[in-house]
Amino acid sequence: MKILIHDLKNEDLPDVIKSSQDVKIISDNGKIKRCTGCFGCWIKTPGQCILEDEYQRMGELLGKAEEVILISRCSFGSYSSFVKNVMDRSISYMLPGFTIREHEMHHKARYHNHIKLRVYFYGEEITQAEKNTAEDLVRANALNFQGIVEEILFYPDKYKCLENVKW
């Protein structure tokens, strides 16, 4: 299964993706709750966020994914607040316990899959410093989530970005 997490309007997406059975689309419904850092997804309802909304089962979804495509505005080198919120709500994909990976402390894996990550940032006049930060962020996410970075690309607007996404 592929997962597409994006901050565009759903009508901007190509029809072939909207109708695909293989792609689970995570869009902004305007009602996403914020991760409160309660760790309930680790110690109260392991593997599932305790906040009840459409994004409650992100960890479980990631556990079934082979590939994740992220399309996000580049906000100062971060994902946009919506896409970052989805990432923040996804930590139940990992276990609370720790391990050492590439000489750093990280969380142990709950699932056995290794997600391929393709990230497409868009935004006007993204600076080189912002690109460097965004690349560091994606690579750090991949290390934390035991994923593999396939590509990280930057585009000046969402239309150019959508033209170049490898669906």
Binding site: G37, S75, S78, S80, F82, K84, M87, L137
Partner: peptide, 20 residues
């Protein structure tokens, strides 16, 4: 700020976006 998934928490990113 606490670190959330390798960066600022979403609410901090939203704060920065709004102020921008």
């Amino acid at each position: 700020m606490p670190l959330y998934v390798d960066g600022p928490p979403a609410q901090a990113v939203e704060f920065m976006e709004r102020l921008y």
